[in-house]
Computed example of a mutant assay.
Amino acid sequence: MANSPSSKKRARQIERRTEVNKSRRTRMRTFIRRVEEAIASGDHDAAAEALRAAQPVIMRSVSKGIVHKNTASRKVSRLAHRVKALAA
């Protein structure tokens, strides 16, 4: 347990940041899930639209420090590949 005043303050700050980060991570996963559901339904137009909506959210999570840049790029790339495969 934190004892010094500075470590107690740090613990409070971490608690607040954890909540914010959790919310942002959940939002990103929700957008990814929407794309995956559209892919599963087989609707290319809906999947493409969902991907267009998800891409900025995923990349924004990089700038907020939620995920690594390469992880976000990999997720976008794999989703885009699956959406493109629907059109064929």
Rank of each mutant, 00 (worst) to 15 (best):
R24E: 09
R60K: 12
A87M: 14
A46Y: 05
I32T: 07
R27T: 10
H44N: 06
T30P: 00
K8E: 02
A80M: 09
L79P: 06
S63K: 11
E19L: 15
K9T: 08
L79K: 00
S4I: 12
S23M: 14
L79C: 05
T26N: 12
T18K: 07
A40N: 04
E37Y: 07
E19N: 03
G65L: 04
I66C: 02
R24K: 15
A46D: 09
T71W: 09
G42F: 10
A72V: 04
H44M: 03
A40L: 02
A46S: 12
E49C: 06
I32A: 01
S7N: 12
S41D: 09
A85N: 04
A53V: 10
R33W: 08
R82K: 14
S23K: 13
T30K: 05
A48E: 06
S6N: 09
F31L: 09
A54T: 11
S4K: 11
D45A: 14
H68C: 04
E36I: 01
A54W: 02
H44W: 05
S41L: 07
I32H: 01
M1N: 15
E37S: 11
R78M: 12
A47Q: 00
L51W: 03
S6H: 02
T71G: 05
S73N: 09
K75D: 06
E19I: 09
R29V: 02
R34M: 10
R52I: 02
D45R: 10
